Amino acid sequence: MAMLLVRSIEQEGYGIPNIRLNVPEGPGRELRLKGAKEKRIPDIALDDLPVGFNYDGYGHLDLAAIDVGSLEKDEIRAALVQVREKYVDDLRRNRELLAGGRIVLPIVAEDLFESGGLDAAVLAAISASERIAGMGGAVADNVRRALARERSIRRQRLIWSLYPWSGGTSLGNY
């Protein structure tokens, strides 16, 4: 995903020049005194805009992976408590990053597999930058140029081709 953000529009990317991966950011002192974590880490931060992304793949909060048939009632409860704790931590991470000035949008595996899903998520980030923070400029212009239908089709095929399985490019209605 990061590769597509920084790739040029001509190379089926979004033309977003400055990103950082997994760099800790933190809320202000006041929130830390109220229990917020010292640092939170967005997976991808767009340096020229107050937005970032956190990617959650299929294994993130995977309730289907809990084999309830082989577990005792207490084990099922414990597994569900762990899932809830992870969910709560994710929400707090996003809230604390927002308080520190970073709007964090989640990206899920389905966004990459669905036709145009990543385009929609990146456009949402640009829209949030423009509407909430009054920022956009050249980065937003690049993204909108990258969203032209033909480029979106080629980018989606590129995304599918990166997955380690055959048949990816046959997905969708392109």
Rank of each mutant, 00 (worst) to 15 (best):
Y87K: 01
G57C: 14
L80I: 14
G52T: 06
K73F: 15
I107P: 00
G168P: 05
A79D: 12
N94F: 03
G100A: 14
L33V: 06
D47L: 15
E72A: 15
R29W: 14
L80P: 05
G52Y: 01
G59H: 03
L4N: 03
G136I: 10
F113K: 08
Q82A: 14
F53P: 01
G134I: 09
S152Y: 07
I107M: 07
G100S: 05
R157E: 11
G167R: 03
V104S: 04
N22V: 09
M135F: 00
P42R: 04
L31V: 06
A64I: 06
S115R: 13
G35V: 05
M1Y: 11
A64H: 11
R149A: 11
I126A: 03
Y58D: 10
L171N: 00
E38T: 09
S70Y: 00
K37P: 04
P106W: 05
S70Q: 11
V143H: 00
N54I: 04
I44H: 03
R149P: 09
D48G: 02
R149F: 11
A124F: 00
L97C: 08
Y14S: 10
R155F: 05
E96Y: 05
D62F: 12
M3I: 10
V51M: 02
G136S: 14
R149S: 07
E110N: 12
A64W: 05
L123Y: 08
A128Q: 01
E130I: 10
P42G: 02
P24E: 14
L61F: 03
R131L: 15
R20N: 09
K73P: 00
P17H: 12
I126M: 09
Y14H: 09
G117Q: 08
D119H: 07
V88R: 06
G26W: 01
D74S: 15
K86R: 13
S115G: 04
